[in-house]
Nucleic acid binder design. Sequence first.
DNA 1: TGTACATCAGTGAACGCGCGTTCACTGATGTAC
DNA 2: TGTACATCAGTGAACGCGCGTTCACTGATGTAC
Lengths: 243, 243
Amino acid sequence: MAAATRTGTGPRDRFRAQVRQEVKTAALRQLAEGGPEALSLNAIAKQLGMTGPALYRYFANRDSLLTELVIDAYGDLAAELARTAEASAAEASEGDAATRLRALVLAYRAWALAEPHRYRLLFRAPLPGYDAQSTRLVEAAQPAMTVLLAAVGALAESTAEATDGTQGAGGAAVPEGTAAEFRAWGERHGFEDVPEAVAARSTMLWAQLHGLAGLEIEGNFASMGVDPSFLYETAVTDFARSL
Amino acid sequence: MAAATRTGTGPRDRFRAQVRQEVKTAALRQLAEGGPEALSLNAIAKQLGMTGPALYRYFANRDSLLTELVIDAYGDLAAELARTAEASAAEASEGDAATRLRALVLAYRAWALAEPHRYRLLFRAPLPGYDAQSTRLVEAAQPAMTVLLAAVGALAESTAEATDGTQGAGGAAVPEGTAAEFRAWGERHGFEDVPEAVAARSTMLWAQLHGLAGLEIEGNFASMGVDPSFLYETAVTDFARSL
DNA sequence: TGTACATCAGTGAACGCGCGTTCACTGATGTAC
DNA sequence: TGTACATCAGTGAACGCGCGTTCACTGATGTAC
């Protein structure tokens, strides 16, 4: 009992960390193979050559294992997006914000496609009997959004410069009520400097990507016989035009 | 055993039909309350004051009940969209295709919000051990798309008339490979007369809506503290502008 | 360097639960003469 | 109008299974003197 929260650096601690990782890996493999909720502690244990109760040395219970998987997945997605953003910033010609945003969009798609079971884990409803730690989860979701906001912000600025001197991210103006909500959201998570219009636009792009990725990983485009690559490209160009 | 597929009109048949409906209703209530897959035959039976095995008089097994729920849900969504389209066609001034499309978008959102468990049923991955009848499901999904295609087509035409004489639904041209895929899709489902550009645009709109609705019903906007109404409006105006 | 002790990973049995599904059956309901 | 029979809804017991979790335990590992 009492899943140890102690974190040391002794040999035992290193062993613990390793087994914890192996449990998570086995859990992900199970999610990938089985259906949405084929996550069974007993099955994981068996896969590691242990018995079920042994897992309680490493995780308090099933839910906290799941929570860690979700948080890890958010972290991975954000890391992947950040890596892409940096790589394309180093590579592309300085001012080409549109190209960088496109790279980000493709990275988002690629991640969802490479690990659909983890993508589902992020954007599905909380599983049955699982309301706990919603704060932790909301926080874990932020870094990925931050990368997107930065890229959209850069594109909005470069667009504004190209046309006139005023702030970009226009399209229709954001009504005051919504603008206030986005401002409050920004303040809560350290985006104070992001204009509301950029936040609103980023959210639209996120929804568009989420829609495309969601339909794609569930096989909707496949059953239509359509390769959605062009749709993602369209999403990028439409978006750039909307700023 | 042998779930009767006979369809008659005698008193026994009417009774059967009624009980089948009650089973479905109880199943939906269970999906609405419990988690994603809290669908249990035994629990349904208990709710109807029966024992588990009795349900096998009405449905071959759990999967075929689920399949019916999915097909019904597609049907309901399509019916709701069709009703909205007709109502707004009768009401709005003849040429106002944009207003009619907006009504459709709001109806889509409203349906997803009113019955999130059914919406999930439609757009989630096939559940564990559930590949059967995919053809039936693909067919069931078409009517809703048909309504959307018609509305987008009408808007595209009216936009084209307003500007010049050529076909609308432009934006970036659809590359030939993708165009061919959309044509084949149209031919397979009786949309031969829908231009590829309209099909592609409709799919983009569908993805945008799906993304917004998906994020909304899973509480992502709520946890941001943002009312997404404005985002749906933006989706409509952006879309109209993209034609 | 060696011994004594505390720590802790993992086991095996058990608890209570619910699941989908089959089977042989009973009793009521509708139908044919 | 009344009787005989076929149909079929629903029951209760059973099958075999897997689940998360607890508990008292054993044996190995690391640590302190």
